[in-house]
């Protein structure tokens, strides 16, 4: 949990974990994240955690599917996996070319990168799941990791299941206590803060709400 004093405290994954410094990546979504982007060098943040789990780095051939800002969560995992000797293929999707996150970084770390954009401004035109379907047909993978819009994650998990490949996803929910107590991040019977954010996708596919709705900060169901 990263505390931006006077603004908010947000659940964030580290997007840079190399060396002694750590990094987070903030996309301007709402008022808080826009203000956070204006933070100046030397400003102080509060940190609680780390909480929750992470991707298992043991698979040798990994397909990473990153939709939009999901790349911020997956990039450090890709680096650690490659350092450990894994072969990593990345399917990177975004609405348009300028929204593609860490495209160079994935290529530099030694991953094979497939690009898809909704508007065709870079890579394949259309959803990243089209690229995923082709990669699953032409490559052999031990695991699929995904992070991005839940509808994408659901589709990726179903494609992986059809090929008999284990898949894992990092999911996002409203987060408050981060201690498994307040229920803000409830997803089916799970609490994303302590039992996630990474789940075996087979567990999530069983939940009618996965890819269908999340809860707002009042606990109301909000459809995707």
């Amino acid at each position: 949990m990263v505390w931006f004093p006077g603004e908010d405290e947000l659940p964030m994954s580290l997007s840079y974990t190399d060396g002694s410094s750590k990094g987070i990546t903030v996309k301007a979504m709402g008022e808080t994240s826009r203000n956070v982007q204006r933070i100046e060098t030397g400003a102080r943040l509060g940190i609680r955690g780390p909480y929750g789990n992470r991707f298992d780095l043991s698979p040798r051939r990994i397909l990473i599917v990153a939709g939009g800002s999901g790349a911020a969560v997956l990039a450090p995992g890709a680096e650690r996996a490659i350092e450990g000797g894994a072969e990593v293929t990345v399917a990177l999707g975004a609405t348009t070319e300028t929204e593609l996150l860490f495209r160079e970084r994935f290529a530099t770390m030694g991953a094979e990168v497939e690009i898809a954009t909704d508007d065709g401004s870079a890579g394949t035109r259309g959803y990243v799941t089209v690229a995923v379907e082709q990669l699953l047909a032409t490559h052999t993978f031990d695991a699929v990791w995904s992070c991005g819009p839940e509808i994408m994650m659901r589709k990726v998990a179903l494609l992986a299941r059809a090929r008999g490949v284990a898949s894992y996803g990092s999911v996002e929910r409203q987060m408050k206590c981060a201690l498994g107590m307040c229920d803000a991040c409830a997803l089916g019977p799970f609490h994303v803060c302590v039992e996630g954010p990474v789940f075996p996708m087979e567990k999530l596919l069983e939940l009618p709400e996965f890819g269908a709705f999340k809860r707002d900060s009042a606990g109301r169901r909000v459809r995707f």
Binding site: M1, D8, E9, K176, A218, G219
Partner: peptide, 11 residues
């Protein structure tokens, strides 16, 4: 009525 509660940090 629905109530979002306070901003974080809440804990």
């Amino acid at each position: 009525l629905p109530r979002p509660g306070y901003p974080n940090p809440t804990i």
